[in-house]
Amino acid sequence: MSPTLSEIGAAKYVLLTTFRKDGSAVATALWAAPDGDRLLMWTVTDSYKVKRIRRNPRVTVGACDVRGNPKGEPVEATAVVLDDAGTEHAREVIARRYGVLGWLTIKGSLLRRGRSGTVGLAITTD
Rank of each mutant, 00 (worst) to 15 (best):
K107G: 01
R96F: 01
H89K: 15
V26L: 12
A27S: 15
C64Y: 10
G23M: 10
V50G: 00
V14K: 00
N69W: 02
T28D: 07
L5A: 02
V59W: 02
V66C: 00
A77W: 01
A79D: 09
S109V: 04
A27E: 13
S24D: 11
V14G: 00
A29S: 14
K12W: 01
V66A: 11
F19E: 02
E76M: 04
G72C: 09
T125S: 07
P3G: 09
T18D: 02
E73H: 09
L39P: 02
G72R: 08
N56K: 11
V119K: 00
V100A: 13
T118W: 00
A33W: 05
V59S: 03
T28Y: 08
K21R: 15
V100W: 14
A85Q: 13
T87L: 07
S109L: 09
A90W: 02
E88N: 11
D37H: 10
Y13F: 15
A33C: 06
T43H: 07
T105R: 10
S6F: 01
L39S: 09
G99Y: 08
T78E: 12
D84L: 08
A122F: 06
L104A: 14
P34Q: 14
R67S: 12
L39M: 11
V14L: 03
D22Y: 10
I53E: 01
G62A: 08
V50S: 03
L101P: 00
A10Y: 00
N69H: 13
G102A: 08
R96P: 00
G36W: 05
P74E: 10
G108R: 07
G117W: 05
T4K: 05
I106K: 06
R115L: 09
T4Y: 03
I106L: 12
R96D: 13
P70W: 08
R52H: 13
L16T: 03
V75C: 07
A29I: 05
A29M: 04
G62E: 08
L82E: 13
T60I: 01
L111E: 00
R52N: 12
V59K: 03
A122M: 04
N56V: 04
V93Y: 05
V81L: 07
T87G: 07
T43N: 06
D35S: 15
P3A: 15
E76G: 06
G117K: 07
R112H: 11
D65W: 12
V81H: 05
G117E: 09
M1I: 08
M41Q: 13
